[in-house]
Every structure is written in C-alpha cells, then in structure tokens.
C-alpha cells in the first residue's frame, strides 16, 4: 500500500513531460516552417530588387528616343520611388505584418503596371524597339516579371504550409502564446495578368 503513494506524483510528472515534448515539437515545426517562409520572402525581395535595378537603364533608353511620351516613364520613375520609400526593415518584417505586406505588394504591383504601360507605348516606336539595347532590356524585364510571378507563387506555397500547420490541432492551441512570432502569414493575391509574363512576339 505504501508503494502507491508515489504513483500519483510520478504520473503527473510523466504527463507534464509528455505535454512539454508535444509543445516543443510543435513549436519546432512552426519555427522550421517559418524559416522557409522567411527564406522565400528573401527570394521575392531579390527579384523585385532585380526589377528595380533595371529601371534607370530602361528610362535612359526610352528618353533617348525622339519625342517619347514623357508621362509614361515619369510614371515608372514615380512608382519606383514610392516602392523605395518603404524602409528595408519594414519590408523584411512584412511577413509578420499584413498591413505592411499589403502596402508593399500594392506598391510593387503599381510599378509593374506602370512598366507594362511603358512597354505597350514602345510598340509605337518601331525604331526604338529594334535597337539591340532595347531588345536586351526587354528580355531582361520580361524575365524578371516571370521570376516575380514564380517566386510569388513559391512564397504562397510555403506561407500556406505554415498557416495550415499553425491553424490546425495541436499548434493552434498555443501559437498565439508567442506574440507576433507565429502570426498567420499573408498571401499575395493574384492580380489581373500577374500570373502571366507579358507576351513576347518575335515576328518582325
């Protein structure tokens, strides 16, 4: 009979240990998935930066063409500037802050549509379009737009993996205990035409 007296405490300790292990492994899985989201977000930032880096050259090239409509490249420069106004620290942390995320995505989308308007206007300038310099730029821009679409889709995938784990049992019970660390990750919404890189036509 005396032996039974310590069974109770041992059972309690056992249960506590099991719960701790359980929470620990769920926590670790969220950390792992969160790191995948951060890494992919870095890729998204990279490809956006790549696009931004092409713009000065593009603007210089179209400016050189005779009486090119200035409003189009001014719109591009303006959109690029408004993307640049968002501080790098805010951008980096945007996956944990839906408002910042939406702001950044909207600014980038605006830049994207200003660029595609400019490329559409270039169609009216066959001489400019035929130059080696512009063709190179166009290929780079199209490649970059395609990379952006690609990395955004990859990002949505890893964000979804994180959110699914976060919002299902058992992680959902304690994910909120760690502050904003395990907030749901925001998604890129498909904008019209964003899934598809601009069409290329090499016919003369």
């Amino acid at each position: 009979m005396q032996q039974r007296s310590w069974i109770g405490p041992v059972a309690v300790i056992g249960i506590v240990v099991v719960i701790a292990l359980f929470v620990g492994s769920a926590y670790n899985s969220l950390v792992t998935l969160g790191q995948a989201v951060d890494a992919q977000w870095g890729q998204v930032e990279n490809v956006y930066q790549r696009r931004a880096d092409l713009i000065p050259n593009l603007v210089a090239t179209v400016k050189g063409a005779a009486n090119f409509e200035s409003s189009t490249y001014e719109a591009v420069a303006k959109a690029r500037a408004s993307v640049g106004q968002i501080s790098p620290a805010v951008v980096q942390n945007a996956v944990n802050n839906p408002q910042d995320f939406a702001k950044y995505a909207a600014a980038q989308d605006q830049l994207g549509s200003a660029l595609s308007r400019l490329l559409a206007v270039v169609e009216n300038y066959p001489q400019l379009k035929a130059t080696e310099n512009f063709q190179t730029l166009q290929a780079q821009l199209e490649g970059t737009e395609n990379r952006i679409a690609f990395e955004r889709r990859k990002y949505n995938d890893v964000a979804q993996a994180f959110n699914t784990r976060r919002d299902t049992i058992p992680t959902v019970f304690f994910a909120g205990l760690f502050g904003s660390k395990f907030n749901e990750k925001p998604y890129f919404k498909a904008q019209a035409g964003a899934e598809q890189a601009p069409a290329v036509n090499f016919s003369p």
């Binding site: 889709r153 949505n156 699914t164 919002d167 019970f173 998604y187 890129f188 899934e195």
Partner: peptide, 23 residues
C-alpha cells in the same frame, strides 16, 4: 475563439489553394 481558429484552419486547408504552385 478557439473554434473559429479551427474552422479557419479547415477552411484554409481547402480554400487557399487558389494561387497554388504544384499540380
């Protein structure tokens, strides 16, 4: 709140496949 989370999780698992990457 907890139940809402659960529902959200289940809905997410099926609905947010929208811009999905694979398949």
């Amino acid at each position: 709140r907890l139940r809402l989370h659960l529902v959200a999780g289940i809905v997410l698992a099926f609905a947010v496949r929208g811009p999905a990457f694979a398949a």
